[in-house]
């Protein structure tokens, strides 16, 4: 069967996707001791979101659906552990969903893995590289995996690294001699290099200085405008999300609690006094346990979808 990417379809359809992880059990002697203790005072040893002691597990993503249209910059915000990276990994074929389906330009990421892989790339918050190799050597390796020749890869790498403001002398020195921010730029270059039409950015600017952040954001905009790329980005920088994203989903405990344009999200909450910021929205929608919650409008939020 021949399957092909259809550029006229949505860049991404996520349909009711769920992912659970088994939580590693504590060693049996700890469990035994805890059990012995529990008969005395009635407390239990099992923890985590749901599940009994035998099938302990955590629901990292619980029934998420979303659509990203071609050419959009789509943001995902959410607290630590809300499932952003898990979702991004499922979109990039690194995790297989337990339930539901992910389509990239109309192709199922599990059934048409290879076709999907050719058109996507991902930047994650940890810039993972062969640490003793230089940026150029790492980028050459990455580009060759996507079928580029050495010469072409070298030319493009130098171009992108320069655009990201990396000094030429560091191109050939080992990665582990570079600062975290510089490594992150090389990670971004690695993804841009293969000209993905769907780019998955998992906290790409975490750890970058303000100017570098700005450069990356500019580059993301340019990729979308000039290279017809669609971008899905997660970030903890509310200002960045506000500036960059056409639409934003807010994820909390593995579920989407709101999805709208930045302006639309802000309209969801009303504040007496000043204009709400995206940070206010984030706080209110994900902040059940926040003390002093009465500071916010107690009116229940209407979830747009």
């Amino acid at each position: 069967m021949k399957a092909a990417i259809d550029r006229n379809q949505d860049a991404l359809n996520v349909r009711n996707v769920t992912k659970r992880f088994k939580v590693s059990k504590p060693p049996f002697w700890t469990r035994w001791r805890a059990q012995k203790g529990a008969t005395g005072n009635g407390s239990t040893a099992s923890g985590g979101r749901g599940g009994d002691a035998g099938m302990q597990g955590v629901v990292a993503i619980g029934g998420v659906s979303l659509d990203v249209h071609r050419g959009e910059i789509y943001g995902i915000l959410g607290p630590n552990g809300s499932g952003k990276s898990t979702l991004v990994r499922m979109l990039s074929t690194l995790l297989i969903p337990d339930e539901g389906q992910v389509l990239v330009f109309g192709l199922d990421v599990v059934r048409h893995e290879m076709e999907v892989k050719r058109v996507i790339n991902r930047v994650s918050v940890d810039a993972a590289f062969f640490k003793k190799l230089s940026p150029l050597e790492n980028l050459l390796y990455g580009a060759r995996l996507y079928g580029m020749t050495g010469g072409e890869a070298r030319r493009k790498s130098i171009d992108i690294l320069g655009r990201l403001g990396l000094e030429a002398r560091s191109y050939t020195q080992p990665m582990d001699e570079m600062s975290r921010g510089m490594q992150q730029k090389v990670a971004i270059a690695r993804a841009f290099l293969t000209q993905p039409i769907l780019l998955l950015l998992d906290e790409p600017t975490t750890g970058l200085d303000p100017r570098s952040k700005y450069e990356v954001q500019e580059f993301v905009n340019e990729l979308r405008d000039c290279h017809d790329a669609t971008i899905l980005i997660t970030t903890h920088d509310m200002g960045e999300a506000d500036r960059l994203c056409d639409r934003i989903a807010i994820l909390d405990e593995g579920r989407i609690v709101a999805e709208d344009t930045p302006a639309g999200l802000k309209r969801l909450i009303r504040r007496n006094g000043h204009e709400p910021t995206l940070e206010d929205v984030f706080m209110q929608l994900t902040g059940k346990k926040l003390s002093g919650a009465e500071e916010f409008d107690p009116e229940p939020v209407e979830v747009a979808n």
């Binding site: 990039s92 290879m114 996507i120 994650s124 993972a128 990455g142 995996l145 079928g147």
Partner: peptide, 10 residues
């Protein structure tokens, strides 16, 4: 830590 990038490539 590069395993995800290698296995993600086509």
């Amino acid at each position: 830590g590069t395993i995800e990038y290698t296995l993600m490539a086509p």
